[in-house]
């Protein structure tokens, strides 16, 4: 039930993001004669401070925000799964080191550090400044740095429990190769925890991206993202309060959708 509800929410957003061009509105072209227009047949949610169609902007923002969320979650899952499996498999010092690192990262306040990281000159790591694609890569990279921890902890716990099972211990004693053991026994058992963790990571990344963009450190205008649309709307709260409501609702939908999917997956 939850799983379905979550999928429906996400499906709506994804469909909207894909269908955005079908609305036939050019989200880039300002129309100075039509600023802050009220909702109408032509502009379902009205227009923004430059006379652009709000719904189209919102759906294009969905592309950016969802892309960042999914990319971050995938990167974090791959890294986190690898770390978790290695820690569980090797045990001992490796495990202790990796888990101390994870604990250390978890104990740190993430956002202040994200602010520092996001303010660092992207050209230092060879990314051009101020371009949309590099903005996204940068954000995904930064969010992954903190995102893998949760996945790693979940994976490690799951992998440990698999490795402790009798048939796995027997297989190990019989000299089954490590690769085969991992592939046949450990990884299949990890699919559920990892997908739950990934879904949660998508939610976390969407929230974090919107927060960074809101603080002016994420996706830069004119590229729409829910976070920077909200930042813009906050300044106009008095002229156009509804402009602040829609992007927030979109974030709420996306994050709640991911959480529900994760909850549902866990319960299955």
């Amino acid at each position: 039930m939850r799983f379905r509800l979550g999928l429906t929410l996400l499906g709506l957003l994804v469909a909207g993001a894909i269908a955005a061009p079908l609305l036939g509105q050019d989200s880039g072209a300002p129309d100075l004669f039509n600023r802050y227009a009220a909702p109408s047949a032509e502009h379902w949610l009205g227009t923004d401070d430059l006379g652009r169609d709000l719904l189209t902007r919102l759906l294009e923002g969905a592309r950016v925000s969802l892309a960042v969320g999914v990319a971050t979650a995938l990167a974090a899952s791959i890294l986190g799964t690898a770390v978790g499996v290695v820690a569980a498999w090797r045990g001992g010092v490796v495990d202790a080191l990796l888990m101390r690192l994870a604990d250390g990262l978890l104990a740190l306040p993430a956002l202040p550090l994200l602010v520092v990281l996001a303010a660092v000159d992207p050209s230092v790591v060879g990314l051009p400044r101020g371009e949309a694609a590099s903005d996204m890569i940068r954000i995904v990279g930064i969010l992954t740095l903190f995102g893998w921890v949760g996945v790693a902890r979940l994976t490690r716990a799951a992998a440990l429990s698999v490795l402790a099972r009798d048939h796995v211990r027997a297989a190990r004693a019989l000299g089954v190769t490590e690769a085969r053991l991992l592939w046949r026994h450990v990884l299949p058992a990890l699919t559920v925890p990892v997908s739950v963790a990934t879904a949660l990571a998508v939610a976390g990344a969407i929230l974090a991206e919107s927060t960074l963009s809101f603080l002016g450190l994420g996706i830069a205008p004119p590229n729409p993202s829910w976070g920077n649309m909200l930042a813009n709307a906050q300044e106009l709260v008095f002229s156009a309060p509804m402009a602040a409501v829609w992007p927030g609702l979109a974030i709420l939908m996306a994050v709640a959708g991911c959480t529900l999917v994760a909850d549902g997956a866990r319960g299955r």
């Binding site: 100075l32 430059l50 004119p222």
Partner: peptide
């Protein structure tokens, strides 16, 4: 280019671009 975070300039910039 302009100063990021200055909404008024960012608006102007987008109109100029068009």
């Amino acid at each position: 280019m302009t100063t990021a975070g200055n909404r008024s300039r960012e608006q102007v910039q987008q109109v100029m671009q068009a």
